[in-house]
């Protein structure tokens, strides 16, 4: 199996703490785009970007409309918009209705990322108190992508990872502190 081409991550309640554990442990040589959709409930995602930027091994930016998903960079979905990956691996945004009560929605990110990267995608579903992301994870697997779900027992809120396992299943189900190592293994050449 050749190295995977991109990582998409989704989380909700407890997501900040989880990301603060995973992002620092990523390998600095990781040359794939990392795209994060986290429900923050706040109107502005800049605080999240700053907090993650302080600890992450890779630079963290807000995902920008029409810009390419740059390798070696963590792109965070802005609040109030769905973040989509176009077939040419550039970002687009829309303000369509909420999906599973969320905008940005993890389902929307995962489904469109699966469309863009097909079997090159690794999707990670972590802690959260709703079931957003589960349908998206299924689309990822159908497209040949790799689904990594946080072990519900290690999740601050287990609803989201459980829904992911129920609806999509997973290629791996790992405790929080083993997720980064698996991503490095899957995505380093």
């Amino acid at each position: 199996m050749t190295a995977r081409a991109a990582i998409a991550m989704g989380c909700s309640a407890g997501g900040l703490a989880a990301l603060q554990r995973v992002l620092p442990a990523l390998d600095r040589r990781l040359a794939v785009p990392v795209v994060v959709c986290a429900h923050t409930g706040s109107a502005d995602v800049s605080l999240l970007v700053e907090l993650l930027g302080r600890v992450s091994a890779l630079p963290v930016v807000e995902a920008a409309e029409r810009e390419p998903a740059d390798p070696g960079v963590v792109h965070v979905a802005p609040s109030g918009y769905h973040l989509l990956v176009e077939p040419n691996a550039h970002f687009s945004l829309n303000v369509d209705a909420r999906v599973t009560y969320a905008r940005p929605s993890i389902d929307v990110l995962f489904e469109t990322a699966a469309g863009a990267w097909k079997d090159g995608l690794v999707a990670v579903l972590m802690t959260g108190a709703n079931s957003d992301g589960a349908q998206g994870l299924r689309a990822v697997r159908q497209a040949g992508g790799y689904a990594l779900v946080q072990d519900p027992a290690s999740a601050e809120s287990d609803v989201m990872p459980r829904a992911g396992l129920d609806i999509a299943g997973a290629d791996a189900c790992l405790p929080l502190d083993q997720i980064a190592a698996r991503l490095n293994q899957l995505c380093l050449p």
């Binding site: 989509l84 990956v85 176009e86 863009a116």
Partner: peptide, 9 residues
């Protein structure tokens, strides 16, 4: 139209 949004719609 941007294809990803169009497809979802």
């Amino acid at each position: 139209y941007a294809p990803a949004s169009l497809k979802r719609r």
